[in-house]
Each structure stands twice: as C-alpha cells, then as structure tokens.
Amino acid sequence: MGRGIILVNNIVKNIPRFRNIFEEHINFYGELLPHIFFAELTSVIIDLVDGEISGTEDVEMLMDNLEKELSFDDEESRNVIALSFIENLQGQGYLKGMKKLMGPRLRALAMETCGI
C-alpha cells in the first residue's frame, strides 16, 4: 500500500466528516484513487472555508494531517498533496488565503508548487 493511500486512510480515520466523501469515491470508482479523492475533497474544503458548511476545525485538522504526512518525505504523498490539493486550491483562487492555516512544510510545498 502506497503512502498516498495511507494518507487518505489516515485523513478519513482522523476526520469523520470526510468519510462520506471517501465512501462515495469508493462506490463510484471501485477503488481508492488518491489524486481524484483529493480533487473531490478540495470542493468540500472550499465550502468549509467559505462558511457554506460549518467545520473550520476540520480544515485545521486536515492541514495538520498533511503537515505530518510531509514529514515522511515520501514522493507519492507529496505528489498527491501538491498536484491534487495545492494546485486545486490555487486554481480556484483559495491557496493564498489558506496559507495561514498551513504548517511550514505545507507552505514550502505551496511555494514550490505554485510560487505562492
């Protein structure tokens, strides 16, 4: 099992709100595809940040999970976080505002990935 899958499993275990996204993802694709899961997760994160649904503590918990994952210095999970989370936030105009919630490793990856 790769680190990308472990990353998603840890997030779903630690943040129950995201379990429904995970289950819908598995039902639709028949397997866990970490890049696609993170793209789907980004929409929920944006709704949380915008206050369309309550749960900013879940956003903070996600950021903590991503920061911890980056400490493992694993290329697979780093790639999932950079390409399917950070770039999606940037593409939807949310990366700059989210940086205040990011730890140092995640901010550095955002800078490396998107120059922000």
Rank of each mutant, 00 (worst) to 15 (best):
M1T: 07
I6W: 08
I6A: 05
V8M: 09
N10Y: 10
I11L: 10
V12Y: 08
K13E: 09
K13S: 03
K13T: 07
N14W: 08
N14Y: 06
N14M: 08
N14P: 00
N14D: 06
R17A: 02
R19M: 14
R19I: 05
E23F: 07
H25D: 06
I26D: 01
F37A: 00
F38I: 00
E40A: 06
E40S: 07
L41N: 05
S43W: 09
I45N: 00
D47E: 14
D50N: 14
G51M: 10
T56L: 14
E57G: 02
D58T: 01
D58L: 02
D58W: 08
D58N: 10
V59D: 01
E60P: 00
M61S: 07
M63D: 01
N65F: 07
K68E: 05
K68A: 06
E69D: 11
S71G: 01
D73H: 10
D73F: 06
D74I: 05
E75Q: 04
S77N: 03
S77Q: 06
I81Q: 02
F85W: 08
F85A: 00
E87Q: 15
L89G: 00
G91C: 04
Q92S: 11
Q92M: 11
G93R: 10
K96Q: 09
K99G: 01
K99V: 09
L101D: 05
G103N: 05
G103M: 06
L106K: 04
I116A: 05
I116P: 01
